[in-house]
């Protein structure tokens, strides 16, 4: 069985898949990739199904190698990556030769990068998933000298592909749907919430991200004595001091602080990928509008597969491709050197 060797790793590198649904009654949230779309993009590039397990890299990658040639894909946050010094463009599949060093640096745009291997990571599933769930104490962050089993690439000769990824690193308008506690907020508070520009606070992890804003906190009269109730990923919870947190994959399953609404799944990746300082604003859909955005993982993967194209390997074209993929507010990498700031702001 081929193996992945971790030569070094940033502090937040974990194995992730689409998570562990079905344990809410026992208090365990689904977990899984913070940016599920990025995981599906990797699955599309590598002809995998929705069961693919990958490495999620929060903020910083590491140095990795495998003992067999196999294809890899890098999706999600834009991270400087190279194989034995040769740059690897994002959102492509590439062959990683046996023993070659894949080096992945810090995120230039976004937060969570994904490194996928054709055939997937095949660690032993726990309760139906390979995903580390750090807040539940399932699994752990990877460290240097970890060795993980890989499934093996069934078709390493498949030509490289690319997939034009949507920008989800520059925040913007995030769609909320109403939830069971939206009506605890009076109309004026709700209107003010929807007209406020928030900035992603540095505090945040796979459980949730804190948002900052100028002006008064957002509260409800009964804010500290509400009966605790069920929570889902995407819920926007106002803690006791009136500060919003958007809850992510490793959220708690029950909580008492009031929730003003739920970020729809299609916009949750943009929330998770908003680096500190990124500006976010919310809009509230009605239930029918929200329900119309539902798309199954299988449907999404089918669409992404169809969007994959052969990678044109001419270096000039690759440079152009990078520009084509990035939209305003996200840097292409070269201008990062110009402003000397590796964070998106």
């Amino acid at each position: 069985m081929p193996v992945l060797t971790v030569h070094s790793a940033g502090p937040g590198v974990t194995v992730q898949d689409l998570g562990r649904p079905g344990w809410t009654a026992q208090g365990l949230s689904r977990g899984g990739a913070a940016d599920r779309l990025a995981l599906l993009e990797a699955a599309a590039l590598l002809d995998h199904d929705t069961g693919l397990a990958v490495l999620e890299m929060a903020g910083f990658g590491g140095v990795f190698s495998t003992d067999r040639p196999l294809r890899i894909a890098l999706t999600g946050a834009l991270m400087q990556a190279s194989i034995d010094g040769v740059p690897v463009p994002p959102n492509t599949s590439q062959l990683l030769a046996a023993g070659a060093k894949l080096t992945i640096g810090g995120a230039r745009a976004g937060v969570y990068g994904y490194l996928a291997f054709a055939g997937g990571i095949v660690t032993t599933p726990v309760m139906g998933s390979r995903a580390a769930h750090l807040t539940a104490g399932l699994g752990r962050a990877l460290v240097a000298d970890d060795i993980l089993p890989l499934g093996g690439d069934p078709a390493p000769d498949t030509p490289p592909r690319r997939l034009d990824s949507t920008d989800r690193y520059s925040g913007g308008l995030i769609r909320l749907m109403p939830g069971p506690q939206t009506d605890l907020f009076d109309d004026a508070t709700l209107a003010r919430f929807l007209s406020t520009s928030f900035r992603r606070d540095p505090r945040g992890n796979r459980q949730g991200v804190r948002l900052d804003h100028d002006g008064a906190p957002f509260g409800v009269a009964s804010g500290l004595s509400i009966t605790s109730d069920l929570i889902v990923a995407g819920d926007v919870q106002l803690t006791g001091d009136g500060v919003p947190y958007v809850l992510l994959a490793e959220c708690q399953t029950i909580g008492g602080y009031p929730r003003i609404g739920t970020v729809i799944p299609a916009d949750l990746a943009r929330t998770a990928q908003a680096a500190p300082g990124t500006v976010l604003q919310f809009t509230l859909l009605d239930i029918a509008q929200a329900d119309a955005t539902a798309q199954s993982d299988a449907d999404l993967l089918r669409t992404l597969r169809q969007a994959c194209q052969p990678l044109i390997r001419d270096p000039h074209d690759i440079a152009d491709l990078l520009r084509y993929q990035l939209v305003s507010g996200v840097t292409a990498g070269d201008d990062l050197e110009q402003d000397g700031d590796g964070t998106q702001g």
Binding site: P180, T262, I287
Partner: peptide
């Protein structure tokens, strides 16, 4: 009350 709780959920409270 019967409320939405996520795109794939209904809460009966």
């Amino acid at each position: 009350a019967i409320c939405p709780l996520g795109l794939d959920g209904v809460l009966v409270r």
